[in-house]
Design a protein around this nucleic acid. Sequence first.
DNA 1: TAGTATGCATCAGGAGGATTGATGCGTCAT
DNA 2: ATGACGCATCAATCCTCCTGATGCATACTA
Lengths: 304, 304
Amino acid sequence: MSWELPPLGAIRVFEAAARLGSFTKAAEELGMTQSAASYQIKVLEERAGTPLFLRKTRQIALTEAGQQLAPRATDAFSSLADAWVATKGGATGVLSVTTMETFATNWLAVWLGTFQLMHPDLAVKVNTSQRLVDFSREDMDVGIRTGTGNWPGLTAHYLFKADYTPMLSPRLAESVGGIHHPEDLYKVPLCCASDPWWKIWFEAMGVPFEPDRVIAGPMLGSQAYDAMAALTDRGAAILTRNIYSALLAKGQLIQPFDVLGSDGDGYWLVHLESRRNTPKIKAFRDWVLAQTADIREREKGEAR
Amino acid sequence: MSWELPPLGAIRVFEAAARLGSFTKAAEELGMTQSAASYQIKVLEERAGTPLFLRKTRQIALTEAGQQLAPRATDAFSSLADAWVATKGGATGVLSVTTMETFATNWLAVWLGTFQLMHPDLAVKVNTSQRLVDFSREDMDVGIRTGTGNWPGLTAHYLFKADYTPMLSPRLAESVGGIHHPEDLYKVPLCCASDPWWKIWFEAMGVPFEPDRVIAGPMLGSQAYDAMAALTDRGAAILTRNIYSALLAKGQLIQPFDVLGSDGDGYWLVHLESRRNTPKIKAFRDWVLAQTADIREREKGEAR
DNA sequence: TAGTATGCATCAGGAGGATTGATGCGTCAT
DNA sequence: ATGACGCATCAATCCTCCTGATGCATACTA
């Protein structure tokens, strides 16, 4: 299905000229000079093998061929313009977010409602996966990931630190007489005990990590699942404080120690550099940054 | 109604690539290189602010935005192509011929039937007027005119000489005892006696024209009307032999003398130079030239 | 009726977008 | 493991398209 098409620039001018009844006006609408318009019409007529306009004095009129062509050209351009505007005005439709379960369940799930109130015409589709998707290979708009903020080809906006600390349910803590010293953690199962975060955290507390003393808890492979285990009294989990602050605030989990472990990673919102001005991406980015602004403020205070 | 349109060249490539599922194939269809196609897609994606294709390995897939855009682009181009082909394939539709009454009534009216048999889908619209129309101002395809074949901007095809000679009805000739010498013409009314053709013809006969001896006939201003007058015994008319050969052959008019007057003019078929390859014009031109080929053959013989 | 304004055609000149061809990279298939 | 395939990228080049000035014809105006 290989079509024979007219010179596209030329027929664009033709369409405007036919609609406006003037080469000069058409040129104005298209932001070019009258001579350019005249040239394009000439090109089109040569290709057509037939005149499309009659040159009356100080005005033009369509020939029969022109009359036949003009409305159809207008239609075609009109529908093309519709489709194009719909495509590029990407603020409508669906926004795809890819992130990890942790963030999705404990942050997005909590706050997304306010975003949808602000953008009722924009559906958010959340996709969870452990790896960082390749935005050139998968149809995703934005991602929220942990890392150092350095991903080639992507723009990354810093959200907050990924620092972590042990958490457990109040009931479990109570069952062992409370958690007052790091060593008390050896009295309860530790979720994902092999996770390096435990070691880093213990050392941040100034206490060596002793794997032999650990009661192994479930190994679930994701912070989100560890958190569920902790919530249901199955053990202590080492979790990102900034993510689980809601559960802490409600008292469903407790954070026995203020000290946070850190491997330097943070949470970042990322998207393709080339799409920084896409309306729907801009809307989501602005909203996430506003929602997390207070966390960054607090971090600044702590760093001081 | 000023539209926002995508870069037209770019979306043309996009449409082909979406349809064919490959940049390379699209480039082939459009007669350009793969790298050009890749470039255009990139341009379009930048303008759209969103990727349109996912780059899988060794194949591409449309993103959601692309899926939304592609069929609409295909539609738009398809209808544009339809309209364009209909316009440029001008062999269909209406062919406008402008000529003088003489030719229209005595040549076209006689022969046009055979043309329409050959081109049943092509309607011929005949427009008669005395002046040579300006093809850039009036919506005419071809003209048939007398002259020397030299009209700027027009292509002229020679048909036959415009040479003329007196004719009259057999009955009128008989009523004055036959026309044997030029002087016998003074016995009958002469149509359009002031026409210079009479003078030229008398002199071509080697006889001076004596306006005083003329019986003035009707002055109708057109050969066609003169011919009607002659047919109805109202006088002798000086007519183009090549045009009235049909009436002569049927004996409705007679041509008393073989000698033809000439002012050097001929009949020519003309059209805009730029439209020489328009199918419908080509069809009509070929047909007229074929129909008149024998006249030109005869003229060659006489000239020898 | 001269003078002015309007609209299209034409021309030479020039900028920049589009194209090419080579190259690189990643993946699939044999 | 190696060649084939397909897309991305880059520098160099080409050429399309646009501009600005000018001309011409006509319509309007005083």
